[in-house]
Design a protein around this nucleic acid. Structure first.
Lengths: 194, 194
DNA sequence: AGACAGTAAAACAGATCTGTCTTATGGGGA
DNA sequence: TCCCCATAAGACAGATCTGTTTTACTGTCT
């Protein structure tokens, strides 16, 4: 009822789960809310995923795949490594600008499932490792300081996103982008002015 | 049973709540677990706090008070403003070094109660505003760039702590401290070497 | 046409959640 | 001594949670 019934139940469930989990948190949303928002039978959820935990992991993995695709599309034609890294910030800024933004869904999921080795925590770490790998390859010409730059970039990235969640303003992530541009020595107007 | 019964029920409840909430998350821990760990009757909890939400707020406020006291004690005798700001990072590093560290409990609480205006969210923001105020007064001699420095410091601080939670290593917050020292121009050995 | 796979709807089970209420006990002050 | 209040212990209520099962419908393929 809620969504167009043209999609298969698994897709409608993931769409509804993404909307509800990102907005209210994972533990705060029950299975009944998900199936109601998806317009799907409970048996279809357990047929498709088997458990709520598996649905959560699938939600994270689908978002991870979407984020990777968005990054690939956004950096197409971008040659400069620093610009490619800053593209991640631009994508985060665009996401943070949406009303009802509730912070990084990977960090949020890691917060709600803090047990080490938990499948949710591993899905989160897989995403973060992928991000670091992209930045690392983008900064491949920096020699031995590359790893340090990647680590510092992640501090800025995480801090910017965490600030957005609390301040309900995109200012922290915009500032983090500026700091990353300074760290990496970008030749951009906003960096040259400072 | 669990704790020494010398403390009053409210204090034992807050002790147990702090231990359980920081370790497993707030929504993941039920009232029954808290009273069992505190060795206290359920009626005492509702007598003292009235609701789980009020207990959560009290937990955050007590931790906030403890953090303020720890900061005041740690900066006693520290004259240099930059050193005072870096003291916050040193305290965070010390906290992050404990095994079973699960990240900033304020950011975690904000993640679990994302609704704007929620009492928990307001308690979190109160703590963050206090931190910014301390940094702002410590950097009082920086003129108009002071606000920008405070905002940048918070990006580093939040990012360092968020990284610790995922990486299960103190490296990100140590790195964030180093970046903050560089940002603020500290005359410390680790900063002078770079 | 008929069989079948996928799905909706809803009852159901068992656990767990928050919060209330009752009863009993024990220690401290009048 | 006696009373009273804080507290412990636990039953209880009602809601909600995850997950299972049953029944019925519907579109598709042979």
């Amino acid at each position: 009822m809620a969504a167009l019934p043209s999609l298969r139940p698994a897709d409608r469930l993931l769409d509804a789960a993404t909307r509800l989990f990102t907005l209210h948190g994972i533990r705060a949303v029950g299975i009944d809310q998900v199936i109601a928002a998806a317009g799907v039978a409970k048996s279809s959820l357990y047929q498709a995923f088997g458990s709520k935990e598996a649905l959560v992991v699938a939600y994270l993995e689908r978002q991870d795949a979407a984020d990777r695709a968005a990054y690939r599309a956004a950096v197409t034609g971008v040659r400069d490594g620093v610009e490619r890294v800053l593209t991640s910030f631009d994508l985060a800024i665009a996401g943070a600008g949406r009303r009802s933004y509730r912070g990084c869904l990977y960090l949020n999921a890691a917060t709600e499932f803090p047990e080490p080795g938990h499948p949710v925590a591993e899905a989160v770490e897989a995403h973060r490792a992928w991000v670091r790998a992209r930045w690392s390859e983008a900064l491949g010409d920096r020699g031995p300081e590359r790893d340090s730059l990647v680590a510092r970039t992640q501090v800025l990235y995480d801090g910017g996103i965490a600030g957005v969640k609390c301040a309900r303003s995109t200012a922290p992530i915009v500032l983090a982008r500026e700091m990353a541009a300074g760290l990496l020595g970008a030749n951009t107007p906003e960096n040259a002015s400072r």
